[in-house]
Write a protein that binds this DNA or RNA. Structure first.
Lengths: 361, 361
DNA sequence: CCTGTGGCCGTAACCGGTTACATAAGTGGC
DNA sequence: GCCACTTATGTAACCGGTTACGGCCACAGG
């Protein structure tokens, strides 16, 4: 690029009175596709020191208003954007939050992210994402990769195995756990699965059910575990004469379908189903309808989560404010980052019963 | 943060020879809750220079194998993790990719993220997320905030207004556009909406439909726009005698419902509906059923996207490999980052017709 | 007129890495 | 025995910000 019109930005020659013009290291205009302008470019262009530029742009008080205005104008003209890495290096703050999730599936995930993003961007934080791909060891690997590039972590590890790994990992950053079976050492936020299960049982009993079966979640999953325990506890307390029937699935609709057919084949009688999540409940609904069993007349069905499908297929369920979980997790993490959080504690989100056609006609 | 051990912030004492043994600045073991170990700690502990540590840990060739092994061992013992900000600063690489999306809603979003995450982590990249909250100016703001902390950007801006802003923004990083109406200046990837619309029309005509109406998407949306145009073009080409009826909605189920009722009220006859997305198609299905109109007997309905609900409600639709879009976008961005990408070009993902009960009994 | 004070600004150290270059030791060939 | 060359390691200059500290100047009080 030989002698491009260097007329406008060669003011720096004023500081160096003579010498042979340092090759105009970086004197292109903002419109060019040049290297991004640095704080030094701004300082040179404004005939000020980099310290003043830094102070002015960061809103420090001890800067002359006129000077600040000039700096802001020059910065805008050069299209200056502070280098985030450099800033992080000297301030030891990244303004980023790492999010480690077990899997990117379905509405649950997008709602969670929505809540997190809103809370994070409200505080000027950005979200760095990582999927553990349902591999337990991946979680620690993902966290390690994030160390140093985030100010804190939100980790979701519903699998007990992952939670165990987590517990043994030394942390160097603030961390909030979501839906994880470890409420002692860290700040955490969870769904009150036992309460939800209790609400489900109460509702089914109110509808007149006398033989309730539970389609449970995976044994390794904390939510499945707690919902199963909550179901059993509620049954013991509220319907002590009923036998407790539980069949575990894998949170997929096909499991619900299969388990219902197995129960029917085995001649097990039931008039109510509490599934540990909506997908399995929908699979159960499907199987019941195919077998000509009236819902809710002969069998009432209730799920957990309130996914959009539940609304469409009139499934009674327990609504969980997933976006709220995400938002609260971020809020608490930011509180911990800024040192305004208290001792580690666990916060529970309460599920809300949503009654639809699958339990009441 | 009361009385944290103030011994660690006396950094200037290292330069001034204050005698008195620098107090083993940072010699705790990995298990402690101390300040993270730096490369200097590792070097000191291994009796080597920081250059050797850097070379050893980065796999450079010119390091004695025995030395490398010792360094690796010491690093592991100290729990050393390189500071990402420092590394980014000197290498000008962040190994992060910025993702700017219009909204975090539904299955579409999670599938997209899934595809992106898989592709990104396969190449050792992390994802930095940003939501533009459906505010056009937010997009440029979000991008600005990401500059310097990412190696490249994937931007999704289905709104024409946002795309326009984007076009005028000077870019300093590699960028791939997804579903955006600007295929000239940047690498981009999109859904072949016109082809999909054509497939829909062909299928409806094959099913014997002779009066097809289109429930279109928002005027400002590129996908809606292209599907509408594709519909009109296909009708002109394949059924030139039919009049082209189009009613625009907002991609929500309620719109489909409302529009169908309006058409019926206005006495407009039709035997086929092509909706610009599945949600509106489902709304239409709902309205038709409530009005006692047989589907597909009297009216066939086809949607676009193949969301999970479509499967459950037996909606014929055009499947879009959303995860594939995300994955391809990341792959191409990484190619551009590493300089192995060619000139900007547009890549199209082909929708696939999925025939279900709403068009064929 | 001298000195204290406060506002504004510049100098330079520092954050924790990477890497060009210098240095030192070992190897082979003549 | 000397030189060229390779290999292994150390030194120090960066990368682009932030900020402690000190200097300069204007102005007020004595």
């Amino acid at each position: 690029m030989p002698h491009c019109n260097g007329s406008d930005h060669t003011r720096e020659s004023a500081t160096h009175p003579v010498t042979a013009e340092p090759a105009t290291h970086n004197s292109q205009t903002a419109s060019g596709r040049s290297e991004p302008a640095t704080i030094r470019d701004v300082a040179r262009s404004a005939n000020l020191s980099i310290a003043s530029v830094s102070r002015a742009l960061n809103g420090h008080a001890n800067v002359n208003p006129a000077t600040r205005a000039r700096i802001v104008a020059v910065a805008a003209e050069l299209g200056y954007v502070p280098n985030a890495a450099a800033r992080s290096l000297s301030t030891a703050r990244t303004h980023a939050i790492g999010v480690v999730l077990p899997d990117f599936h379905g509405e649950f995930f997008s709602e969670l992210m929505r809540g997190m993003d809103r809370a994070a961007s409200a505080h000027g934080y950005q979200l760095l994402l990582s999927n553990t791909h349902s591999d337990n060891t991946m979680a620690t690997h993902a966290i390690t990769a994030m160390l140093g590039r985030v100010d804190g972590l939100v980790v979701m590890a519903p699998s007990f195995a992952t939670a165990k790994l987590l517990r043994n990992m030394p942390v160097r950053v603030p961390m909030v756990l979501a839906n994880t079976g470890d409420g002692t050492a860290h700040h955490s936020i969870r769904i009150d699965n036992r309460l939800g299960a209790n609400s489900a049982v109460v509702h089914l009993l109110e509808q007149g059910c006398r033989r309730i079966v539970h389609i449970g979640g995976p044994a390794d999953n904390i939510d499945g575990h707690e919902r199963r325990e909550g179901f059993a506890a509620a049954m013991r307390a509220l319907a002590p004469t009923q036998s407790i029937v539980v069949r575990d699935g894998e949170f997929q609709d096909s499991c619900g379908d299969r388990i219902v057919r197995e129960l029917l084949d085995q001649g097990i009688e039931f008039d109510g189903i509490f599934a540990a999540n909506d997908m399995m409940a929908l699979g159960a609904l499907h199987a019941l309808r195919e077998c000509g069993i009236d819902v809710p007349g002969e069998v009432a069905v209730i799920g957990f989560d309130d996914i959009p499908l539940a609304h469409y297929l009139a499934l009674t369920t327990l609504r969980v404010d997933v976006a709220g979980v995400g938002g609260r997790a971020i809020d608490r993490l930011i509180a911990e980052i800024s040192g305004t959080a208290g001792l580690p504690s666990t916060e529970a989100i309460l599920p809300e019963l949503v009654i639809r056609g699958s339990t009441r006609s």
